[in-house]
Design a protein around this nucleic acid. Structure first.
Lengths: 243, 243
DNA sequence: AAGTGGTCTAGACCACGAA
DNA sequence: TCGTGGTCTAGACCACTTA
């Protein structure tokens, strides 16, 4: 076993997940009842329940009191409720992305960016501009602002990079814990439309993202995607209990 | 107590939430440690932890091993990670919405709708069209498709209705458990632009929603919102463990 | 070293769904 | 009625943060 140090409930979760994805447990069937799972994995009820709960959170199973835990069909778009980068999302959907016209500069933070990142205006940030290319055509413009002290010497090291988030993790050991996205539609201004190769005023899907490490905002992203070429997927869950 | 029948962890959750929202526990402060909470509420550790976990899921607190559980600042936009209707979302943000040109018809399901709802094409569905009005101006077009057998006699009963979801709950005892949204930007076609009062081809934020009860799709919604007049908010969380 | 949250157990009883 | 998942307890030990 590679993951000897992982908590038991994670191990149970992983093994169940593998069996679901390999169709050892087929869609529409039920998982073994919890007392069975206790015996199978030699763990307590609590541990079993936490593992199954994780599967449920991911949308892999549907738990019903009195009936059992049903295996659901996993659509590939279903997994995107976690913090992922634009390029990872596209890769999931089978598109090869690369970036052109990459440019990184160290600048004093503009007011709006400073506000988003909850820092003093003028505090240095790295601004990274890129054009996302899919099938040899521009799909989107990306502008990232990163706190300079989180990514020292960033500007000189980024020349080739497939995914920013993978780069940040490998080079700086930075992983975002959560993110807030604000999505809207807007007409493409002249400079953006010319780069993207669409008519002036063409609809763009604009995403403003603030990324957090613990509770601290460390990145602000402005994404402008050609409308009708990309869909943003969101899964929403049941409400919290009414009181 | 009104909620005598609720599980204890929900009661603990509710009381903690109330204290956070009334600033009895201030932003940046820490909740009492879990052993303290056990004593305060006279419950076991498990129960305390489940309650705190719920607060964390809602983004009200940030739990840190070895440090404590920190109270976070709650922005009003932060609560929208649950299934809500368009009008409820707008109301949260302080906008008064009402609907005009409400029209409901019983029709055989078109192919694309049938596909979304996983039913036979032609199976009867209720189609509901509305124009959402804010500040006396059109903001969005809404088209809902509902399985006919879920909402018998719907067409004759909807004349006045503030929120469809509230209506469905009170009249038919229908509450959606989850929903999938697909968001994109598209140019307004002629018929839609004239109703919305925007130029032909103006950017619209389009949301396609499939709503579920248990695992069964029961509603398909097509939302077309005037770009730049509305922001769709999404909070994404940490990833599941790497295996 | 002390105190926090994280994991885990064994066992009990309750609530719901199907037969 | 029986078997399922849901709630809850008391207690133990581990892992992390801070001092």
């Amino acid at each position: 076993m590679i993951n000897q140090k992982l908590p038991r409930y994670v191990q149970v979760y992983a093994r169940l997940k593998k069996q679901i994805e390999s169709h050892s447990y087929k869609v529409g069937e039920f998982l073994p009842p919890e007392p069975e799972l206790e015996k199978i994995f030699h763990v307590s009820r609590t541990t079993v329940r936490k593992a199954v709960e994780m599967l449920s959170q991911e949308g892999l199973v549907y738990i019903q009191q009195g009936r059992g835990t049903e295996v659901l069909n996993v659509t590939p778009t279903q997994k995107l409720q976690y913090v992922t980068s634009f390029s990872e999302t596209l890769k999931e959907q089978g598109f090869q992305v690369h970036y052109r016209d990459i440019e990184a500069v160290l600048i004093p933070s503009p007011i709006d960016v400073a506000e988003m990142l909850q820092i003093q205006p003028g505090k240095p940030v790295v601004r990274l501009d890129r054009v996302a290319i899919v099938h040899d055509k521009p799909l989107a413009l990306l502008t990232n602002y990163l706190l300079e002290d989180m990514v020292p010497n960033f500007v000189n090291t980024i020349k080739k990079m497939k995914s920013l988030y993978e780069f940040l993790e490998s080079e700086y050991n930075l992983v975002f814990d959560s993110a807030n996205d604000f999505i809207t539609a807007k007409p493409a201004p002249k400079d953006e439309s010319s780069i993207l190769g669409v008519p002036d005023g063409y609809p763009l899907l604009q995403v403003r993202r603030i990324s957090f490490i613990k509770t601290r905002p460390v990145e602000f992203v402005l994404l402008r995607i050609i409308g009708n070429k990309y869909e943003y997927f969101v899964h929403t869950k049941e409400r919290p209990p009414k009181l």
